[in-house]
């Protein structure tokens, strides 16, 4: 009888191994971003602005936007973001979305000048570890034809202890869901770079380092 109970207990233990849920706090403040800002718009020229809205988990959502110009005599703008420079001067360009009763507005100052001038072409940041694994270094991201170049500085170091370390571009520092996987980390010390096609400077907010097979976040770098 005692032996039967012992064998029954063995069976119960072996069956008590079900897949359950682990929860991750992946909330981020929603963000409305103008993808292609410029500093100066040439007189009598037009320019098509575009926006992207990222929801409370950093995923892109297509929702209706309202474009406005604070000075319609200088710059007019249509509801799909097409701006027309009418006279010399300045105007505040704003875009607003309404998501779940939350009004989110992003704006920037635009000058009308003799010719159109692109905005910033370079952003930067610092990679820092968020774990006990070594990960550190500076980086610069530059806009290039057809994509971006992520240049990691020579003060970069990463632990070689974790298998499957991958680098991502993301709008959520806590999750790779919806992130763009750049690829496996192949350099663990010193300067190196990544070319990422079909991406612009304003598409993402973070560089993320994850141990992909085991979903362990190793570190990140906010793109400033």
């Amino acid at each position: 009888m005692k032996l039967n109970i012992a064998i029954f207990a063995l069976l119960i233990i072996s069956l008590n191994s079900c897949i359950e849920n682990d929860y991750i706090d992946d909330f981020v403040e929603p963000v409305l971003r103008i993808n292609n800002p410029i500093d100066t718009l040439g007189i009598n020229e037009s320019y098509q602005f575009s926006k992207t809205y990222f929801n409370n988990v950093g995923l892109q959502e297509n929702i209706e936007a309202t474009w406005e110009s604070s000075n319609e005599n200088v710059i007019s703008i249509s509801q799909d973001g097409l701006a027309q420079a009418l006279s010399l001067g300045n105007s505040l360009i704003s875009v607003t979305v309404n998501s779940e009763d939350l009004l989110l507005t992003t704006s920037f100052s635009l000058e009308v000048g003799s010719s159109t001038a692109e905005s910033i072409q370079k952003v930067s940041g610092v990679i820092t570890t968020t774990s006990s694994y070594v990960l550190e270094g500076d980086f610069i991201i530059q806009q290039e034809q057809g994509g971006i170049a992520i240049n990691i500085a020579d003060n970069y170091k990463a632990s070689t202890a974790l298998p499957g370390l991958f680098i991502y571009l993301s709008n959520n520092p806590n999750s790779v869901s919806g992130a763009l996987e750049i690829g496996p980390v192949e350099v663990f010390n010193g300067a190196h770079s990544y070319q990422v096609d079909n991406v612009s400077l304003n598409d993402f907010s973070y560089l993320l380092y994850f141990c992909k097979p085991f979903n362990i976040k190793v570190g990140d770098g906010r793109i400033e």
Binding site: S17, I19, E20, D22, Y23, S175
Partner: peptide
Amino acid sequence: LISRNYNNNLVSLTTNEVLIQGES
């Protein structure tokens, strides 16, 4: 004789969606 290895589901606390499906 029987070895079982599994990972849990990874679920968003914000949306309650399964981000990474658990496997065994």
